[in-house]
Each structure stands twice: as C-alpha cells, then as structure tokens.
C-alpha cells in the first residue's frame, strides 16, 4: 500500500513453491543504510566504521498544508462533487489500480477478476455503483470514519487528525479533489456485481 516510492525497482520474485510472488505490498524502504553488495554477507568491512543510522532520507521536506476543497455531508453522503469538478471514469479506473496512487486493490477485489493478487479486506468493488449512489461513494472515499469510527478504509481526502504522517505525504490528501471525482465516476459506473 503505497509502500513504494516512484521510481523504485519492482522485482518479480519466484517463490520456491513455484508461485510467482509479485513483490507488492509493504516493500522495504528504498533507503536502507549503505551496504556493500547484496546477497551473501560480506565481512571484509570489518574494522571500518560504519555510520549508524545514516538514513539518507530523501524527503522533500514537510509538506505545506493546502486548504482542501470544502464539502458538505448530508446524511451518509456528500451529494455535491468536490470543487465542482467533473469526474473522468477512465482516469478513475487507473487510479484504483495504480499501486502508488489509489492502491485500492491491495484491500479490495476490483471489477476485473484477471487482476492478480487482490485484497480481501474491504467489500468487492464490483456492483458498488448499484449498492451506493455517487454521494455515498464520495463520503466513503473522503473519510469513511465519519460513518464508522473503527473503519479500516483509509481517508483519501483528509489531512487533519492524522499522526506521524511521513514527510513526503504530510499536509496532502491521498487523492486530490479531481482524483476523488474521477474515482467516484468510475465506481458509480460499476453496476453489475
């Protein structure tokens, strides 16, 4: 889930059981301390002082908080589009699949059963457009905890009340208002379970 920085390598590893393991979730931090060579341990470094915790965090500094587009919750929905934007369902579909941006399939089974390694944590997304209307979907994406405080569904359009956010994401919502609208337009179109 967003475990990878843009540009980091994405190895496909073969597990000895034969099944291909697509290294997908919770990838190692790309900035591990300096190491001489991968694979087998090399012990020739003995005696060299190695800097502990030289973590070379390539962070772009604390994000500056941008004011999010305001919205109004009515019942279990946000009836009006964020920022008055019109959603693009094709881009929404991309965002849902994109491992870096939406990364929804880490937890949800999407509409395409051919997609490998989908999650079983949230409800399947097929047919969600028949179960919920656009306004209800919008609120689930923006901040599902308004409906269920214990929810596991991450808030995709919220910056307040979050703790220890990594500097590169700090002060920014996971998806922009336009992107939320794109995803809403896509999900609302998924009528068949």
């Amino acid at each position: 889930m967003g475990g990878e920085r843009p540009g980091a390598a994405m190895p496909v590893l073969a597990d000895r059981a034969g099944a291909a393991v697509v290294a997908s979730t919770f990838r190692p931090p790309p900035q591990t301390p300096p190491r001489k060579g991968e694979g087998l341990p090399r012990l020739m470094l003995l005696g060299e002082a190695v800097v502990v915790g030289a973590l070379l965090l390539s962070v772009c500094g604390p994000g500056t908080a941008l004011a999010l587009e305001p919205y109004e919750v009515v019942g279990d929905a946000i009836p009006r589009p964020l920022g008055g934007f019109t959603g693009d369902p094709a881009h929404g579909e991309q965002l849902v699949r994109d491992r870096e941006r939406g990364n929804c399939l880490i937890c949800h089974q999407g509409a395409d059963p051919r997609e490998p390694f989908q999650g079983t944590i949230g409800p399947p997304l097929a047919g969600v457009g028949a179960r919920l209307d656009a306004g209800q979907i919008r609120l689930k994406l923006v901040d599902a905890s308004r409906l269920n405080p214990e929810t596991v569904m991450p808030p995709y359009f919220r910056t307040e009340g979050l703790r220890d956010v990594s500097p590169q994401y700090r002060g920014k919502p996971a998806l922009s208002a336009q992107e939320i609208e794109d995803v809403v337009a896509y999900l609302a179109s998924l009528k068949t379970p």
């Binding site: 889930m1 591990t32 973590l55 220890d164």
Partner: peptide
C-alpha cells in the same frame, strides 16, 4: 527493517534502525 516497511506501507514516519 520489517517495521520500517510496515510504517512506509501506511505512509507513516519511518523511525531509525
């Protein structure tokens, strides 16, 4: 290292080793 991966997974601060 594993913990740092889980922290990054939820886009949280990665604490030092």
């Amino acid at each position: 290292r594993r913990l740092r991966a889980c922290s990054l997974g939820v886009r949280a601060t990665q604490f030092d080793y």
